[in-house]
C-alpha cells in the first residue's frame, strides 16, 4: 500500500489540518508516513505545498518524485495546477473551486480545466459553499479531504478516526461538524 499526495493551497488556508488528519489516521494504522511542509515566508499569502507520503513500507525521500503522486489535493483552483509535474499518469486531481484572489493578475482557468479534464481524472468541488451549507464554513478543508478520500488507500472509518483525533480538543460538536463535512465531500466525489 502506498499513497503519495501533493497538498496545495495558499499560506493561511490551513492545508496542514488535512495533512494532520491523514497523519493521525496513518499512525493509528501503523503505516509509515512522511510529510514535508512549507513554513516561513511563503506562509504570508504565498503558494504553499505539502508532500504527504503514506506507505506500509519504510519511506525514503521526504519529497515525492515527479510523475509519482497519486493525488493532487488543492484547496484553491489555480494552486492545483502548479504541481502537475508531480502527478502520475494514473493520478487524480481534486480541487476546491473557490478562488483565493490575493494577486492582481489572477487568470481565468476555465479553458485550462476543460482541456485537462480530457486527460486527467479531475474532481472540482465548491467546498466553501458546501461547508457553509453544513453550517461550518471553517470545515471546507474537511470537505476537500472527503472529496479526495476515494483516491487515498486508507479506509473511510480510519480517516474519520484521524479527524476525531485532530479535533478532539475542540469538543464533540466541532468533531461532528468536521466529520459531517468530510462525509459530504466524499458523497460528492462518489456521485460525480
Amino acid at each position: 500500500m502506498k499513497t503519495d499526495i501533493i497538498l496545495a493551497g495558499v499560506g493561511g488556508q490551513g492545508i496542514l489540518s488535512i495533512a494532520a488528519s491523514l497523519g493521525a489516521a496513518a499512525l493509528n494504522e501503523d503505516f509509515y508516513l512522511k510529510q514535508a511542509e512549507t513554513h516561513g515566508m511563503s506562509q504570508r499569502g504565498g503558494a504553499v505545498v505539502s508532500h504527504l507520503r503514506i506507505s506500509d513500507k519504510p519511506i525514503h525521500s521526504d519529497l515525492i518524485p515527479q510523475g509519482k503522486a497519486d493525488l493532487i489535493l488543492s484547496v484553491e483552483p489555480m494552486e492545483s495546477l502548479r504541481y502537475l509535474a508531480y502527478l502520475s499518469p494514473e493520478g487524480s486531481l481534486v480541487t476546491n473551486t473557490s478562488e483565493y484572489k490575493n494577486i492582481s493578475n489572477y487568470p481565468d482557468l476555465e479553458d485550462t480545466f476543460s482541456e485537462l479534464e480530457k486527460k486527467i481524472n479531475i474532481v472540482r468541488i465548491d467546498a466553501d459553499k458546501m461547508a457553509r451549507e453544513i453550517g461550518n464554513p471553517k470545515a471546507s478543508n474537511m470537505v476537500m479531504l472527503g472529496a479526495a478520500s476515494p483516491f487515498i488507500s486508507i479506509d473511510e472509518e480510519i480517516i474519520i478516526k484521524g479527524i476525531e483525533t485532530i479535533f478532539q480538543t475542540k469538543g464533540e460538536k466541532i468533531v461532528q461538524l468536521n466529520i459531517e463535512a468530510f462525509k459530504a465531500g466524499r458523497a460528492f466525489a462518489h456521485n460525480k
Binding site: 515527479q66 510523475g67 495546477l81 502548479r82 504541481y83 502537475l84 509535474a85 508531480y86 502527478l87 502520475s88 499518469p89 487568470p107 481565468d108 482557468l109 479553458d111 485550462t112 482541456e115 485537462l116 486527460k119 486527467i120
Partner: peptide, 8 residues
Amino acid sequence: PDWNSPDT
C-alpha cells in the same frame, strides 16, 4: 513528467 503546469 507526463504533465506540465499550464502557461496560464
